[in-house]
């Protein structure tokens, strides 16, 4: 099951696209951080509108956090490991499907509230950039296709549902071993294929949207002293001084 037995379109979809996405995500984020530290923000619109945001935003974000956690468990942890600690396939499927469905429902509900808010509140809609709109399309596509894949292949299919831990998860891990196995993606239900491609496009778009704020989640806040002191020397300038303006110093003797 190497690269050689896969057709060209499979290689493009399941080998080239993931690596290109990864490269764009990493290089793009570094570039954005260096070029546009000032624009690296949540761009919160809470000042304009609070009533809908108060429900929509926590629903969406907390839902998404659980969705991310679920993806980590499903994609990164091999089924042999869960079986080794005594979690049967049936039990895993039950937990994953039930918790995943709830998380997806919460996130989608939040997203719907947020999109409605963005469209219906005058100042919020005016503050929406073209980049935001593009991002919303891909975000909604990933989220909805993922939710649909769960409903179609896990809930409606009956039994243990489609076992993505035999195909998608090993494929995902094979990318990280640098020994991609596109053949594993043969025969994966279309809903999952759409979901994966939409997600990859979203990740490629990520560094160029307001989604970058996810990378600066304030995880260090609980561990720092309350009041921050900084010296003027380090903080005063808005940009690096030009060459040739170094201060006069006494040469060391």
């Amino acid at each position: 099951m190497g690269l050689t037995d896969a057709s060209a379109d499979k290689i493009i979809l399941w080998v080239v696209l993931p690596y290109v996405t990864f490269a764009v995500l990493v290089v793009g984020s570094i570039w954005r951080y260096r070029y546009d530290k000032f624009g690296w923000t949540t761009r919160s619109s809470e000042l304009y509108e609070k009533r809908l945001l108060r429900w929509g935003s926590p629903l969406f974000h907390f839902g998404l956090l659980f969705v991310v956690l679920g993806h980590f468990l499903g994609l990164v942890i091999p089924n042999t490991w869960t079986e080794a600690v005594g979690v049967s396939e049936g039990f895993y499927h039950f937990i994953a499907t039930s918790m995943g469905s709830i998380a997806a429902l919460v996130a989608v509900a939040g997203l719907l509230i947020l999109v409605y808010r963005r469209r219906s509140t005058g100042p919020v809609f005016l503050a929406t950039t073209r980049m935001d709109k593009t991002m919303y399309v891909f975000l909604a596509a990933s989220l909805l296709s993922g939710a649909w894949a769960t409903v179609q292949t896990q809930i409606l299919a009956g039994g243990h549902g489609y076992d993505y831990r035999e195909t998608i998860s090993p494929w995902f891990r094979s990318l990280w071993y640098l020994q991609p196995q596109p053949a594993l993606m043969e025969g994966v239900p279309a809903a999952f294929q759409v979901h994966i491609v939409a997600a990859m496009l979203l990740f490629a778009l990520w560094p160029f949207t307001r989604l970058v704020h996810a990378f600066s989640a304030p995880v260090q806040y609980p561990f720092r002293p309350y009041v921050v002191y900084r010296s003027r020397e380090a903080s005063v300038t808005s940009r690096a001084p030009r060459p040739g303006w170094d201060p006069t110093t006494t040469p060391p003797r």
Partner: peptide, 27 residues
């Protein structure tokens, strides 16, 4: 300053002026 999750707000050591680092504020 104590409320800022990003640590973008600070009190200047030299003269105690409280400022927001615009490049670090995440809104």
């Amino acid at each position: 300053v104590a409320s800022c999750p990003s640590g973008a707000m600070y009190k200047r050591v030299e003269d105690g002026i409280v400022l927001v680092d615009q490049d670090q504020c995440r809104g």
